[in-house]
Nucleic acid binder design. Structure first.
Lengths: 245, 245
DNA sequence: CGAGGTCTTGAGCTAAATCAAGGTTAGTGG
DNA sequence: CCACTAACCTTGATTTAGCTCAAGACCTCG
């Protein structure tokens, strides 16, 4: 259940690189979009960007919160772990997502890169300043928090009441939406491993794997390789995933 | 699993009463505390207060969102229900809690009174106006949203990975904190029924009941009656409830 | 006083966890 | 470049925790 890969690559997993907002790939998606243009430019002086290797740790559960992050590339996972190694992947963060905002002084989950990723780093005091100066920025943060809360409530229903098949179907559709896969594109990547999916859906790797095979046997999906799913029968998938609208 | 009591009392379950902010019991707890005094007074002209019978429905899943509520007395439950009647009680709202803020146009869960309750009603457009005019108000809402999000993540771990005993222990301690029971007071009320607890913890009524009895047999709690718990061994309870700090 | 609701307890069943093992892929070092 | 190792994924066999079904006790309310 614990991640040996994490322990392995401890050094040189995070590289600071200069910020270049003008060429930012998620300029419109990110929270920065609610800041005035000149302010965004001044960010470049105070904020920085960071490149993460796969499985690099951006923040660790229990450490004091100092920064928040805007994901610009790759994928992160937010992980809550119990002393006995029971794990819950609280969510995955895709480009455009803002993570790390909290009202408690210490991180309640660690933030790790699922694949090589890139984030913009906001110091919390800078963030506080931005929030005070730009109501539109604060407004955006609240808007996002509300959406995340709705999502979390969905997850709660999923974890409490859905069968493994229903959980997996919901997960696939939700991830697809989150990754903004075009509707006419049947295939999507699964950047995270089966273990992460299991710990996200409250199942074991074995049941996740079995559920994948069952979906495949039923002709609902195809699995060109373990990291890619092709949706063959979306109606059937949507039927299973009663949670998502 | 569905609630027959709900269907029973359909008429005259909600009574509008005049607002009296000066004598509000939760004046310091509620979101209103972040508004300037004169503004609070003007609320009385635009907002209203509502009394709810037990099991009254304040909002129904699927209906358009028009209002938000500040709980001033009693207890509410937020319920997400699937077509086949599987239920998830997403949370309980105690006095001081603000509920109903969302970024989607339609309610994703219904809001019901657990016991006779009272709420202040905010029309959403009034709320938007207040948020625009008072940054401190918006700030408070974001703060609360972040806390709720943290709580929701706790619940996700609970639902995904904890045993029934651990879930119940966590629930009791969390509820106790939420209801602000004094530390020297060993007994606490359980306003909600076993069914609500079950649907909150992702269990069946039977397992909830059995878990209560086991905790009693182990001398961790006493149950003077089904609606009251006395905490006898808090250390043991905290040990079980690894989730909460 | 009866009826419906809620809580508790028992017995049996089943879905998912656990245990176990083999196959594939990726990364490492010789 | 290839062998070796370690993850990772899949599949099968077995166990078990919690669900389902069933029934009785208690309590409230009409």
């Amino acid at each position: 259940m614990s991640n040996p890969a994490l322990a392995r690559c401890r050094h040189q997993t995070r590289t600071v690189v200069p910020l270049d907002c003008a060429r930012c790939a998620v300029r419109d998606l990110a929270v920065c979009a609610s800041l005035p243009a000149p302010e965004v430019e001044s960010l470049e002086r105070y904020a920085s960007s960071m490149e993460l290797q796969a499985n690099a740790e951006l923040a660790r559960s229990g450490q004091p919160c100092r920064q928040a992050y805007s994901v610009t590339g790759g994928m992160l996972r937010l992980v809550r772990t119990l002393p006995d190694a029971r794990r819950q992947v609280v969510g995955f963060a895709t480009p455009g997502t803002f993570v790390g905002l909290s009202e408690v002084a210490v991180h309640r989950h660690s933030i790790e890169a699922v694949v090589p990723s890139r984030v913009c780093v906001f110091d919390l005091d800078m963030l506080r300043d931005l929030r005070n100066r730009y109501p539109a920025f604060e407004h955006t943060l609240l808007e996002r928090a509300c959406r995340e809360l709705d999502d979390a409530h969905d997850s709660m229903l999923l974890l409490a009441r859905l069968s493994p098949m229903e959980r997996l179907a919901s997960f696939l559709l939700r991830l697809r939406r989150q990754m903004k896969v075009r509707d006419d594109e049947p295939t999507m990547a699964l950047p995270m491993g089966r273990g992460d999916i299991a710990d996200h859906l409250g199942l074991t790797v074995e049941t996740v794997s079995r559920s994948f095979t069952r979906l495949r046997e039923q002709g609902v999906i195809a699995l060109p390789d373990p990291q890619h799913v092709e949706l063959l029968d979306r109606a059937a998938l949507a039927e299973l995933a009663t949670v998502l609208h």
